[in-house]
């Protein structure tokens, strides 16, 4: 029985907690991608860099706040800096929309042209971020580090396995839940949200019924700015901030959005967790858990790690391909252009 509990704790500590946190971050990122796809109808390659930009503003603001001695300890100061990050990111997004995307929207350009334009925006955003904060790793987490420390947990329960939950992981999950609930309330209950869904389902009918497309687009960018900045900041608090890592997040986030069905917000959340659990599960060395569950003579010699951690891209990619081959519109039905 104690063995079983130990296995359970090890599983929670090494898989459940990290995967839930990472999954929430992916889900928030994927929600942004899926909203852009639903309303503006293109795959935004610049999304990872948008997140990097938003997080950068949050980091700079955090440092400024820290200089002034403002803090909300034990919570990280970055949470306080979020609104400023969101506003500056929104300015960037609306700026690019005005200068770049609007022209193609008016011209009713093919989706592929939008994607190319988003590549250009990606380069520019990436350049701005590197120009301002540089390509190196930045740490900006402050406040308390742990909700539960492994040693305290062991002491408390008397088990030999410890359970550690970082503050950043707790904040990630709580924030993600709040943001998602608010987003769904907005999409399902408010007039603007309903008009957005109508626009996403059937553009022509929506236009006929008098919905102003430019307003819908603007609101979408507002939501995207909120989601991207929060997702990026949470990821940066939990792991660390490096512009290139954010660019690389593009792949798992797209995988999450596609797996769940592009254009479907609920799917994006489910997809985020599918991807994060598979990534963590496949690259985790299962020996620690199996040791407790198997009889002693069966105990594995190797680490029982299916793949080395560097192959985590392969995981999100394989899931992506499997879903696309067997269920091309995703687990939940998405749109296709």
């Amino acid at each position: 029985m104690v063995d079983f509990l130990n296995a359970l704790v090890a599983l929670t500590n090494y898989i459940l907690v990290p995967a839930v946190a990472y999954g929430s971050q992916l889900a928030l990122g994927a929600l942004g991608i899926t909203l852009i796809y639903g309303i503006l109808r293109f795959s935004n390659f610049a999304h990872g860099d948008t997140m990097a930009f938003g997080t950068m503003v949050v980091i700079l603001t955090t440092w400024w706040f820290q200089d002034m001695g403002i803090s909300i300890a034990p919570l990280p100061t970055a949470l306080l800096a979020l609104p400023i990050g969101i506003i500056v990111t929104l300015a960037l997004l609306l700026g690019t929309d005005r200068v770049v995307y609007r022209f193609y929207r008016k011209a009713k350009a093919a989706p592929i042209i939008f994607v190319m334009a988003s590549l250009g925006v990606m380069f520019i955003t990436n350049g701005i971020v590197r120009f301002i904060i540089g390509p190196n790793e930045q740490r900006f987490a402050d406040g308390a580090r742990f909700i539960i420390k492994a040693r305290e947990f062991k002491h408390m329960t008397g088990l030999s396995e410890g359970l550690a939950i970082k503050v950043s992981q707790g904040i990630t999950v709580v924030t993600a839940v709040i943001v998602v609930v608010a987003l769904f309330w907005f999409l399902n209950r408010t007039r603007t949200g309903k008009s957005m869904r109508a626009f996403s389902d059937n553009e022509d009918l929506a236009l006929l019924s008098g919905i102003n497309p430019e307003r819908v687009v603007t609101v979408t960018w507002v939501l995207v700015a909120i989601l991207a900045t929060i997702a990026g900041t949470l990821y940066g608090l939990d792991k660390s901030y490096k512009p290139f890592t954010y660019f690389q997040l593009l792949l798992p986030m797209f995988a999450a959005a596609i797996v769940g069905g592009l254009g479907n917000p609920l799917g994006a959340i489910a997809g985020g967790f599918v991807i994060s659990f598979s990534e963590v599960g496949v690259t985790y060395a299962w020996k620690k858990v199996l040791v407790y569950l198997l009889p002693e003579q069966w105990a594995p010699d190797s680490l029982v790690q299916l793949m080395s951690t560097d192959y985590k891209f392969a995981v999100s990619f394989s899931i992506l391909v499997l879903v696309l081959l067997f269920r091309p519109t995703g687990i939940f039905k998405g749109q296709s252009v």
């Binding site: 989706p111 690389q248 792949l251 797209f254 990619f317 696309l324 252009v337």
Partner: peptide, 16 residues
């Protein structure tokens, strides 16, 4: 795959 799915898929393959 459709055009933008192909893009994501190939982006992933290159990383792999």
């Amino acid at each position: 795959l459709r055009s933008d799915y192909l893009a994501i898929a190939t982006l992933g393959i290159a990383e792999i």
